[in-house]
Amino acid sequence: MFDLLSALDFLSFGFYPDIDKWRLVLAIVIIPMHAVLTVFCVKNRYRLSYCLVLTLGLQMLTLWLSIGDGAILRSVKLDELSGLCLNLLLAYWSIPLATILAAGICFILINASSKSLAYILGLFFDLIRSLPLVTLLFFNTLILPMLFNPKLIITRLEAAWITLIFFLCAYTIQIFLGAYEAISYHQHESAKALGISGWKKYRHIDLPQMLKHSLPALISTYIGMIKDTTLVMIIGLADSLGNLQLLISRNAYKHYYIEFFFILGFLFWLTCTLCGWWGKQLERTSNYGKT
């Protein structure tokens, strides 16, 4: 029997246990709420540290909701997290963390007194950027368990997560460094004349301007990341695309493959378009008095 609803359910939730689906739905709903809150924070010019705490808090909350096993929540196996929710959550768990990491590494690259340290870090992230994401995903599932202590078991999901963070981080660093170059030298001079230097200068003068300059490029990288989460299918994670492949291999759904591809394509199109629209809103609110 052809059953569209159960097929859609399989595409979006995969093997997640039925009783716990509300948790996943809640975690997914948090993502757009976080996006709206970020625009709100930028609009009211809250301190960056508040945004940071908010972001990390919501990340922890979604992690706990989807795969945590607290006192209230039943334990859910990592493998059970699948479908479109896996794509969205992977993107959500890697985008803010990669951005924060990239901002930190940029501080080292810009301010490090030893040039060799900056060189080594630059080389590492250049290597990441020169490799296609599939190769990184593929090899990290193989090699990460070897690099860590054998007692520490790294699942494929965790390996994919780490890979996505570092991959996105490598591109974000490049964007940030470009944005740093775009800051006029008058800004650096006046900061020095006012006696602001080091971390304080980076935090209060460089970083806000870098974020603003790099916003369009950042958003298109984020959209790329949302699309790239489908690659985890190649290392055998049951994301939406993997589930779709599974679905159309069944006899009942075999002849509707075009419809299913269109549905999945539409869902990704919608997500990416919303992300782009969110970026436009963010750009508009961080306009600093320019018309």
């Binding site: 001079e189 006046s190 004349a193 003068i205 806000p208 600093y288």
Partner: peptide
């Protein structure tokens, strides 16, 4: 530099901060 103030030809105010924040930073 705390004893030396400097005014530049092209102002070099911080564009992401309000006037008051520029002063108090």
């Amino acid at each position: 530099c705390s004893k030396i103030g400097m005014v530049f030809q092209d102002y070099a105010l911080f564009p992401h901060l309000t006037v008051l924040e520029n002063l108090t930073l």
